[in-house]
Design a protein around this nucleic acid. Structure first.
Length: 455
RNA sequence: GGCCCGGUGGCAGAGUGGUUAUGCAGCGGUUUGCAAAACCGUGUACAUCGGUUCAAUUCCGGUCCGGGCCUCCA
């Protein structure tokens, strides 16, 4: 099988993927901070790296995929206070919604989903090591990483220390030795979550969480670390600094993958801009599989504008593929080679989808093998795995006229009688009624099938 | 100011130093009681200005435009 190529942010080049252990590939992706529903921007890495893991599983005996949950963070404290509920309650509720959302997006659960609050001891141990090795210092209840102690700090984001000082827009806290130093541990007031530590009662900084959890489950050096483009700096840069300095390694992960942004009307979708659409709401409107297809319709590193039009295109594309795939059974060995070749080229999902459409055309022309290849291949993208009938009829919402499936079937039966009697005016009247209710009929040699129109 | 990424047909979106994906929409046709679906045909698009080359949308450089990071952020 040919080689997998991945764009590595460390080198800004597409490279051959060579795992540390060919029989056990280890992947870490940054997960959510659980203070509210995730939005479509958050959904992108979940879906994209889910495809990566599915692809890796085809090629390697074992894949360990870790995606963390950050459940200690000031945003959580603030949100809980705003809502007048406990932090634990907020986290539990948010995690439950998160799991529902990822399931609707068709994403497989990661092998391990560690929570930051369950790894405080590991974080403290790593901080202690960093202090002992002279890379960190305690000051005023805080512990800070001293960036100048790491020679090649900035290598992932391609920033020099001078640049960072010149570009600094934040006020420098008085306890920092140097402006770029970042927090490993900070003190907690009585009403904030905190843990006892050698530096007083406090809580961890954001970056150390991922370093400690990655080390716990994947070791000091692992294969792939993934996340959104905006995490390159400072989050991933700081993870590298912490992990490499604590472990005396030159690398934390061999390959760093970063997905591009989701935009709305060409503007970055972000919590701070307030132009977000939650996965829950979007899935209610368009269905999870449509979202997934839309999220895979552009290359993962390119920006993706999720307009209403993009959603309709995704849904229409799935309509076509589902009609072609019908209800074939397919096993893994039917996966199309050209399709896989697209994914092996740095997860080129748009090209892979194009190949799916070519297979659909072959299947529509009677090529049974193509239909099987279509279904088996689509599974690698996590698409087309429900029955065609269920896809066609799955109107979450009732139709405008409130027709349920039984009522529709009844009308179709009446129309069938009318057609048998060549009463075409009556037959058309029934179809018009159904069309008005958003039901589209298709007559075939096997009888009449129907589907719900969306939008 | 520093660093990074883009500009492809009506829309979305791949890709390639010369044979020009794919989907949606459109048009023509086959088919159908009528439709729908499907199939066939149809669109010479690659921001701009130079350079390299027998040949550039594809490589190099400049310009213009857009986006992102530098602060929590997928």
């Amino acid at each position: 099988m040919s080689v997998l190529k991945l764009h590595n942010t460390l080198t800004r080049k597409k490279e051959d993927f060579v795992p540390i252990d060919n029989d056990h590939v280890r992947v870490y992706a940054c997960g959510p901070t659980v203070y509210g529903r995730i939005h479509l921007g958050n959904a992108r890495p979940i879906v994209v790296f889910d495809v990566l893991v599915r692809l890796l599983r085809l090629r390697h005996a074992k894949v360990t995929y870790v995606r963390n949950i950050t459940d200690v963070d000031d945003k959580i404290n603030i949100r809980a206070a705003e809502r007048g509920i406990g932090i634990d309650e907020l986290c539990a509720e948010t995690i439950e919604t998160f799991h529902q959302d990822t399931e609707r997006l068709g994403a497989l659960a990661p092998d391990i989903e560690p929570r930051a609050t369950h790894h405080i001891a590991e974080m403290q141990a790593m901080i202690t090591t960093l202090i002992d090795k002279g890379h960190a210092y305690a000051a005023d209840g805080h512990v800070l990483f001293q960036v100048s102690t790491m020679a090649d700090y900035g290598s992932l984001s391609k920033r020099s220390m001078d640049d960072m000082i010149a570009g600094a827009r934040v006020e420098v806290a008085p306890y920092k030795r140097e402006p770029a130093d970042f927090t490993l541990w900070k003190p907690s007031s009585d009403d904030q979550p905190g843990w006892d530590s050698p530096w007083g009662r406090g809580r961890p900084g954001w970056h150390i969480e991922c370093s400690a959890m990655a080390k716990s489950y994947l070791g000091e050096v692992f294969d792939i670390h993934a996340g959104g483009l905006d995490l390159i700096f400072p989050h991933h840069e700081n993870e590298i600094a912490q992990s490499c300095c604590a472990h005396d390694q030159t690398k934390m992960a061999h390959y760093w993958l970063h997905n591009g942004f989701v935009t709305m009307n060409d503007e970055k979708m972000s919590k701070s801009l307030g132009n977000i659409i939650s996965v829950t709401d979007a899935a209610d409107q368009y269905r999870g599989e449509t979202l997934r297809a839309a999220l895979l319709s552009a290359h993962y590193r390119a920006p993706l504008d999720l307009s209403d039009n993009a959603m309709c295109d995704a849904r229409n594309g799935l309509d076509r593929l589902y009609r072609a795939v019908a209800d074939v059974d397919a096993s893994q060995d039917k996966i199309d080679a050209d399709f896989i070749a697209c994914l092996l080229d740095d997860l080129n999902t748009p090209a892979a989808m194009a190949r799916l459409h070519e297979l659909a055309r072959l299947a529509n022309k009677g090529d049974a093998a193509a239909a099987k290849a279509l279904k088996a291949s689509a599974a690698v993208l996590g698409l087309l795995q429900q029955s065609a009938d269920s896809w066609a009829k799955a109107g979450d919402a009732a139709t405008d006229d409130g027709l349920d499936d039984a009522a529709i079937d009844g009308l179709i039966e009446a129309r069938k009688q009318a057609r048998a009697n060549r009463e075409f005016a009556k037959a058309d009247e029934i179809r018009d009624q159904l069309t008005g209710a958003g039901i589209i009929l298709e007559d075939s040699v096997d009888g009449t099938i129907w589907r719900r129109r969306w939008q």
